[in-house]
Design a protein around this nucleic acid. Structure first.
Length: 435
RNA sequence: UCCGCGGUAGCUCAACCGGCAGAGCAGUUGGCUGUUAACCAAUUGGUUGGGGGUUCGAGUCCCUCCCGCGGAGCCA
């Protein structure tokens, strides 16, 4: 038996007889010849089966083998321009692990409903495989980036005892008689671990029970949240710029093939440069009221931007855009007020270019005990639940900042995928939990 | 939750003013020595989302429920 290889390594085995194990992506047949397109997860290979070489039984097997049959083939690899990818296999031996005759997903178009109901099979398509590869690349890039910058990954709990924000909808679960909530952020815990390790981040699933039904919302999504002691608002934004640039570099360098499958216009990514433009909330409101088609003069100072405003602002520039200094009453209680502009906070949202929406939300945190107590009271939050958090302001409080970045939204932008449901293997959406 | 659109063959869709429910793909059978979503020919396949109503007659009109899609709201 010859050596089993992964298709991605095929170019290094030209002239050798090798073995592939995988699934039949597609098949084209002529008299006495079958072109088996084999997929093994790492790539695709055209395997040519001809009657002159194979037994009658083997040719008959190829004839009966349907799309997504699992198979085991051996043969010599040769360079051939007629093969997609430039390398093909002359099959000398073929075995089916399982013959499939009725694979539900056809080669032609399908609707969203059908594909979502068959998400477990849809994942086998080239486009979905490409997106999952980019996702893997981004996760690796993030892990490397934070490690290289001295951040320790300290994961935060998913069960949490209370609602951090009064207005937000959380999923509740029975915690042996007590009510617990699924985490919507590890931020407060990050502040505790940052006081222990200096620079930390957590990365995990985040749950939001809002009844959002849009192309950029999931009920369960993955968020990376970073927190750094002694970072101020400016340090925080500069660090976010570095993260975005490094993520983009990793994807452009290592996922060119995937971006090509996704037909992503990479020139749009290549032109991204730091520093990203920064826009004061007040100026963003002014811009919307002066320039946004159909909404001139309609936007009220003091409210948060909706999806159309975010899209409009994102489209104003080819660079990611920081919106800073939101009015304090629209943002979370822990954000520090801007001493030079006390109605606003030292926080920023980073909007992706091309209208892909908000990627990052970050801020410098309020580090003064009296100020944060006042904010908790102002927001009518249960003080006793935050006692441990106030301790962080009682024992060695320091200026610190952090941010959260959504993995799926980052992928939507990098991959040029308009709907977030394709950026996670099994999306959890409003009224949609199967498979 | 609200607004809009939709549900017809396994899949993607068509069916004019209410008048015999149709095509492409898939499947099946046959053909083709190099295909690139292979191609060519033939062929199978229907409780038109469920329930109720109007009508001589309903995929089509009305009521109602269910499901999906797009958007809004909501949303560190």
């Amino acid at each position: 038996m010859c050596e089993t290889i992964q298709i991605r390594d095929a170019k290094g085995h030209i002239g050798q007889k090798v073995r592939l194990r995988g699934w039949l992506r597609n098949k084209r047949s002529g008299k006495n010849i079958h072109f088996l397109i084999v997929r093994d997860g790492s790539g695709e290979m055209q395997c040519v089966a001809v009657g002159e070489v194979l037994s009658e039984e083997a040719m008959d097997l190829c004839d009966r083998m349907g799309i997504e049959s699992s198979l085991d083939v051996c043969g010599e690899l040769s360079a051939d321009d007629r093969a997609p990818g430039g390398v093909e296999m002359q099959v000398s031996q073929v075995e089916a692990l399982q013959l499939v005759e009725d694979y539900p997903i056809a080669k032609k178009e399908h609707g969203t409903e059908f594909l979502m109901a068959n998400r477990h099979l849809w994942l086998r398509s080239s486009r979905q495989i490409a997106i999952m590869r980019v996702r893997d690349e981004v996760e690796k890039a993030w892990a490397d980036f934070f490690y290289d910058h001295g951040f320790a990954r300290v994961d935060t709990p998913i069960f949490t005892p209370n609602a951090v924000e009064g207005t937000t909808t959380l999923f509740d679960v029975d915690y042996h008689g007590d009510k617990a909530y699924l985490s919507q952020s590890g931020q407060l815990y990050n502040e505790a671990t940052a006081a222990a390790l200096g620079r930390v981040y957590c990365f995990g699933p985040t749950f939001r029970a809002e009844k959002s039904k849009t192309r950029r919302h999931l009920l369960e999504f993955w968020m990376l949240e970073a927190e750094a002691a002694f970072f101020d608002h400016e340090d925080n934004m500069r660090f976010q710029e570095e993260l975005i640039l490094d993520t983009m570099r990793a994807v452009l360098e290592n996922c060119a093939e995937q971006l090509a499958i996704l037909e992503r216009d990479t020139s749009k990514l290549e032109m991204v440069r730091a520093p990203f433009p920064r826009m004061h909330y007040r100026d963003a409101v002014k811009l919307i009221n002066e320039k946004m088609p159909g909404r001139e003069g309609e936007f009220e100072y003091g409210s948060d931007f909706g999806a159309p405003e975010e899209t409009f602002l994102g489209e104003q520039s080819e660079q990611p855009l920081f919106i800073t200094n939101f009015p304090a009453n629209t943002k979370a209680f822990y954000m520090k007020r801007d001493p030079g502009d006390p109605e606003t906070v030292l926080g920023s949202d980073l909007l992706a270019p091309e209208g892909y929406g908000e990627l990052i939300g970050g801020s410098q945190r309020e580090d003064d005990l009296e100020a944060i107590l006042a904010r908790v009271r102002e927001f009518k939050l249960p003080e006793e639940a935050f006692e441990w958090y106030f301790d962080l302001r009682r024992y060695g409080s320091v200026p610190h900042s952090g941010f959260g970045i959504g993995l799926e939204r980052t992928l939507s932008w990098l991959c040029g995928v308009p709907h977030i449901r394709e950026t996670i293997a099994f999306p959890r959406m409003l009224h949609h939990m199967y498979p």
